[in-house]
Design a protein around this nucleic acid. Structure first.
Length: 281
DNA sequence: CGCATATCCTGACTGC
DNA sequence: TGCAGTCAGGATATGC
């Protein structure tokens, strides 16, 4: 489930290997892949353009092309962007879009693979005031933004009675954290995910803010998390390594790595939440 | 406003 | 071994 660390790992790969590439061809075969515009508009907007920058806002990848046009990718649950050195490499199942490139030796094709089809691609022609494509203008502050500190968190959650986990995973407040990292951040901050955020002290919120930054930075350094199904892979197909450092996510009934008590699981907002009742309050 | 639920979808897993 | 049922969840929409 690509969250910020996984998307950032893909972004780093794109920034390293894709910039300077020229779009030679665009082929969209998935029915749901491009849904904000016609595939004709999508393809025409990309053809002949040069890739100039790779950005990320929350879980969204934004490839900036010549002419002020952006290719936006959201991987959602099962999406992958995979580089292919030659067009002759076998195309994986569930490949919904293929972008042919020239002038970049390691990347003849960029492929969008997405078995569950929750992900999407679109082209954006307009920038909002915050410099992001207008379609994702409403996203909250990026979870790795250095400005996300205790006081800002405090302002963001003023007047809400929602739980810590619901705030962490609300992309309109903080962008980039999903179910896995929310649980990991709650554990590392020593706070129960179900705890009402209005009950937290300023010190608690500052600790949450620093824990968001340190947890995500460590996960990025590990290349993100690949779960049992091996769903997430980076641009070149490599698995992440942060799953080996998960303290709670997916570890129901297993001993807590800090205190040894059994990890518990509850449902919160329709999603599984894993935590340690001894280490988190 | 907050919360639960349904929706989109396929693959992995579980239980019989 | 195989088949049906369940679960996984990002974003959005809707109802209470």
């Amino acid at each position: 489930m690509p969250e910020l660390p996984e998307v950032e790992t893909v972004r780093l790969g794109l920034a390293q290997h894709l910039l300077g590439g020229l779009v030679e061809s665009v082929a969209v075969s998935g029915r749901r892949t491009v849904r904000r515009q016609t595939t004709a508009i999508f393809s025409a907007a990309l053809l002949g353009r040069r890739l100039e920058r790779a950005d990320r806002y929350g879980k969204y990848l934004v490839l900036e092309l010549s002419g002020g046009v952006s290719l936006v990718a959201h991987l959602a649950m099962s999406g992958q962007l995979l580089a292919s050195p030659t067009p002759k490499d076998p195309v994986p199942p569930h490949t919904h879009a293929v972008i042919g490139l020239s002038r970049v030796p390691k990347l003849a094709e960029l492929r969008f693979v997405d078995p569950r089809t929750f992900g999407e691609l679109f082209v954006s022609f307009e920038r909002g005031r915050n410099g992001r494509p207008v379609e994702i203008e409403a996203l909250g502050v990026d979870a790795l933004d250095p400005g996300l500190d205790g006081p800002l968190l405090c302002r963001l959650v003023a007047g809400t009675r929602r739980s810590l986990k619901q705030v962490l995973t609300d992309q309109h407040l903080i962008a980039g954290i999903g179910n896995i990292y929310a649980d990991e951040i709650c554990f590392r901050a020593g706070i129960a995910p179900s705890r009402a955020i209005c009950d937290l002290s300023a010190g608690d919120l500052s600790r949450v803010a620093t824990t968001i930054a340190s947890t995500l930075a460590e996960a990025v350094a590990c290349g993100g998390s690949s779960l049992r199904d091996g769903g997430y892979r980076d641009l070149f197909g490599a698995l992440g390594r942060y799953q080996d450092r998960h303290m709670v996510y997916g570890r129901e009934h297993e001993p807590c790595r800090r205190c040894g008590s059994a990890i518990g699981r509850i449902r919160l907002g329709g999603r599984s939440s894993f935590s340690c009742a001894t280490c988190q309050h």
